[in-house]
């Protein structure tokens, strides 16, 4: 069953007198439990596609269905609610809230959902342990290395048990060893918890780890390869 379904998706931006065609009619289905990499050069449209799937942006035309809900017909408030309940995000620059500790960052989504203090704290602690940050729960982002911060970002993305995790260049700011460890962590979470991951990435290591690689060029899908199939 598809967790993401994209049909004839178009996104155009106006820059002065020019119109930039970021996506030119993309069709894509992603099944639950997939570990998918969106690859392509800068400007190919992968981040735009990721943002549209995440409901952070609105398409010029086309349809996006995520977890059975048609994003193209949803209001901004409903898309916020969908992101809160069903999606997780990992960004290139970690983007943790600097004034909150690792465990507070991790439980932030659960707080927004209104879960009880005891329940969300326990889940956040368990999630941090699962990403290898046991003992660092009360450190602020400034007291953590880049790799550790990105692990907190992953913990924040998965603590709410989302249907889909969207990661935009998650290894771009990490050294190769740390990046590799992070990919292994996400692979393990995909394998053990059945979490669906979609990456926008340049990183060949992510491409190697991904079971499906979708290549974008000039706003269109150039290839769609599944490994081991």
């Amino acid at each position: 069953m598809s967790i993401v379904s994209v049909r004839n998706l178009r996104r155009e931006y106006t820059q002065g007198a020019f119109t930039v065609h970021a996506l030119r009619g993309v069709d894509l289905d992603i099944a639950a439990g997939e570990f998918t990499a969106l690859m392509g050069p800068s400007g190919s449209g992968k981040t735009t596609l990721l943002n549209l799937i995440g409901g952070l942006d609105e398409p010029t035309a086309g349809e996006i269905t995520v977890d059975g809900q048609d994003l193209s017909r949803m209001k901004a408030g409903d898309r916020s609610e969908l992101r809160l309940r069903r999606l997780g995000f990992v960004f290139q620059s970690y983007n943790l809230i600097p004034v909150l500790s690792a465990v507070e960052n991790t439980e932030f989504v659960l707080m927004l959902r209104g879960e009880s203090a005891a329940n969300r704290r326990q889940r956040a602690m368990e999630t941090l342990a699962a990403v290898g940050l046991k003992g660092m729960e009360h450190r602020r982002p400034s007291e953590l290395s880049g790799g550790q911060q990105q692990r907190v970002a992953v913990a924040r993305a998965i603590a709410g048990e989302p249907a889909l995790v969207l990661a935009d260049e998650p290894t771009a700011n990490l050294d190769s060893t740390t990046g590799h460890e992070l990919i292994e962590l996400m692979q393990r979470l995909n394998r053990e918890r059945g979490l669906t991951f979609v990456f926008a990435t340049h990183d060949p290591k992510v491409m190697e780890a991904a079971r499906r690689v979708v290549r974008l060029e000039d706003g269109q899908i150039a290839s769609d390869e599944r490994k081991g199939s």
């Binding site: 916020s80 995000f89 932030f108 989504v109």
Partner: peptide, 16 residues
């Protein structure tokens, strides 16, 4: 602004 963008991305509503 960037931090607010992230908060919105993870589900915080503008009124919040």
């Amino acid at each position: 602004v960037r931090e607010f963008g992230v908060m919105m991305a993870i589900g915080m509503k503008p009124r919040q």
